[in-house]
Design a protein around this nucleic acid. Sequence first.
DNA 1: CCAATATAGTTGGGAATACGAACCAGTTAA
DNA 2: TTAACTGGTTCGTATTCCCAACTATATTGG
Lengths: 148, 148
Amino acid sequence: MSSPIDDEVPTEGASTDDALDALVQVAFQVMGVLSRIGAENELSLTQLRVLGILRDRRPRVTELAAHLGLDKSSISGLIDRAERRGLLARERNTEDRRAVDVFLTPAGRELTHQMYDTARRELMPMLDGLDAPQREQLRRLLWLSTRD
Amino acid sequence: MSSPIDDEVPTEGASTDDALDALVQVAFQVMGVLSRIGAENELSLTQLRVLGILRDRRPRVTELAAHLGLDKSSISGLIDRAERRGLLARERNTEDRRAVDVFLTPAGRELTHQMYDTARRELMPMLDGLDAPQREQLRRLLWLSTRD
DNA sequence: CCAATATAGTTGGGAATACGAACCAGTTAA
DNA sequence: TTAACTGGTTCGTATTCCCAACTATATTGG
């Protein structure tokens, strides 16, 4: 059993792996920043995400769960706590009265906006080494990655 | 604010924001993948990270905590459980006998390797839209971002 | 039209994560 | 050699997340 690292694939190999490595590194850094900003406002990363999703949506609980990749039972408590803090609210859906819509309150919208502003400021330095054309390039490259 | 004559200086706004947005999107996707791979092996994202860090290091507990941005008290239990599963081990540092070094067992190394292999395969599709030169470019751009 | 079935959300139990405070045990400084 | 400091663990608490069980509403088939 030798180390299976020795494969020398012509064009696919090293460049791709390194790009992925870099991507993972950056991903963790981004999470760190978002996590910290959340913590400063007594919000978990997941709650931060919830607020982010609600910025431009009014999903029902199940849709929210799907977005987050979580079980719907995990969402209830999450919503409870955020609702208790007045950041979001529930409302019974009128068409399907089993369903519950979730949406930001004005206070929640305000806080979300403020946090995402902070996030932008704090993430900015990560791109310090890039000039405008490089940023544009990065955006285009990453844009391709998220097209699903 | 829009002097259409010279597009040199004030291109800070939209391009940067969009690049950051894309970055955050991708970061969440990456986390999702890693998280799932961890879960398939009954490991939390944090534990996955611990194993990843131990691949090429033999830190003491405090160093590990610093790497993860966690309190050292959070690390003990984490190590306990992974140690109980035989994935890593502790050893009293001989120079400073208060300190405890943490390192992978062969089994832990094996599992880590296998998971990171899977991760590479699963993250690969994210770069599907990019050809080799673009990947190289991405790597270089992101590389700059992680230079701290 | 109504019983069987499916779906939406909540609740409760249990394991894991993370923090801070309190606590030993070793180390360094006064 | 005390006194102060540092490295790790333990304890108590809050949160997150899953699964299973449950209630309420919707849908379907006979």
